[in-house]
Design a protein around this nucleic acid. Structure first.
Lengths: 155, 155
DNA sequence: ACCGACGTTAACGCGCACGTCAATGTGCTA
DNA sequence: TAGCACATTGACGTGCGCGTTAACGTCGGT
């Protein structure tokens, strides 16, 4: 009865696009730009997206839409994340501890940089928020004064 | 001794650009797009930017660079702010209270919308920050374990 | 084997937010 | 009044983040 094609836990690009709220074009574009590692393919060449891929896409979407980061910035963040995954994969295999530590340091520095960037943004954002809240309060005061109109909840 | 042209408290576009960290092209562009109300002009046509203009430009810059808003979004925010200024200017003059209240309500709603948008962004941002902080902690733990390397300050 | 839904790459197009000339005019100083 | 820095208005160019179309291949049911 189900019309959707089944490929285990994997989704074709159409379904993947629908679930993430992105377009097929966008998924291919992100892949092309290295934001998403190339997904699996069927024998004929159709892309198959895993749950991990979908999560990643969701995070990209959030960073872009809600936080306004550029794809380049997002790529940086996700790359640092990749290092973590790589390290986890290499964990059992031939352990060149020094090399792994070096990679870790790089990842740590990148993450620290992002954290600082984020903190700065949040600070500015909070300041802007306060400005807006203050403005709201003044509006409400005026409205109350003039029309007896009610104010709503505040932060 | 001073080489900079003096026009009271006003600055020509070159100085204005330098002080705001924007380019002359950008200042003209913002004016063209209505983000900045047309500045005063000298007799010959040279633009003269006031302190208020500079403040406004600074806020635009922050919203764009640090918060990643589009110029359209920023315009919305500043327009709501304009209403406030207008009301202040009309304050003494013929007081059609009902009309003023209506404008106020519009401004209030716009501001509320922006506040909610900002709060949503800040929430997501905080979540992302926590993720990054957690990642940092894990990196530091590993580094300490492997190399006895020191961790720095945390939030 | 056929067929329609679904997918593929390649290429061009578009809106935003400016950058970058080019041609010309203005302000101030010497 | 000459000269040079600084400004003005077009107009075209650019990079990003995709949208759209064209020409074609694949999948899965009948």
């Amino acid at each position: 009865m189900s019309n959707e094609p089944r490929h285990g836990e994997f989704l074709q690009i159409g379904e993947a696009a629908e679930r993430t709220g992105l377009t097929q074009r966008t998924l291919r574009y992100y892949e092309e730009k290295g934001l998403l590692s190339p997904p699996q393919r069927m024998d004929g060449g159709f892309r198959l997206y895993s749950g991990t891929d979908l999560e990643r896409l969701g995070r990209i979407r959030e960073m872009k839409d809600l936080l306004g980061f550029s794809l380049a910035e997002i790529r940086e963040m996700l790359d640092a994340d990749e290092v973590r995954t790589q390290i986890r994969d290499e964990w059992n295999r031939d352990a060149d501890v020094a090399e792994k530590a070096a990679k870790l340091r790089v990842a740590r520095e990148a993450t620290l940089h992002q954290l600082q960037l984020l903190d700065a943004k949040m600070e500015k954002m909070a300041a802007l928020r306060d400005e807006l809240a203050e403005r709201m309060a003044k509006y409400d005061a005026r409205l109350l004064e003039w029309t007896g109109e009610g104010a709503k909840a505040k932060g």
